[in-house]
């Protein structure tokens, strides 16, 4: 079990940091975010953190996290 605090910070970092996030929300199994610059998203880093997939479509970034996405998202919210 990883401790919650670093996990959220690392996800946020891999998404390009708080300054890159316009919106972020959990959606059942995915972390869905609207980012300012998709080029700052590090898919490989997200996969290393345990994500099962990363879909980038325009400025919409979806990270397949699984059911624990609600926890991850609320931890990220605390950092925003």
């Amino acid at each position: 079990m990883t401790t919650p605090e670093p996990r959220a910070a690392l996800y946020l970092q891999a998404l390009g940091g708080a300054s890159n996030i316009e919106e972020i929300e959990p959606c059942t199994t995915r972390l869905r975010s609207l980012v300012h610059d998709p080029a700052q998203v590090d898919s490989a880093a997200l996969r290393k953190l345990g994500a099962f997939g990363v879909m980038i479509n325009g400025r919409v970034v979806q990270v397949v996290v699984g059911p624990e996405v609600d926890v991850v998202a609320s931890e990220i919210d605390d950092l925003l």
């Binding site: 708080a18 300054s19 316009e22 929300e25 609600d70 609320s74």
Partner: peptide, 21 residues
């Protein structure tokens, strides 16, 4: 849709009224 979270910058200590599901 529930309202997505947005960064609350530049305020350092966020005092948002978040409703966690």
């Amino acid at each position: 849709p529930h309202v997505p979270e947005k960064p609350s910058r530049p305020s350092p200590a966020p005092t948002t009224s978040k409703e966690d599901s």
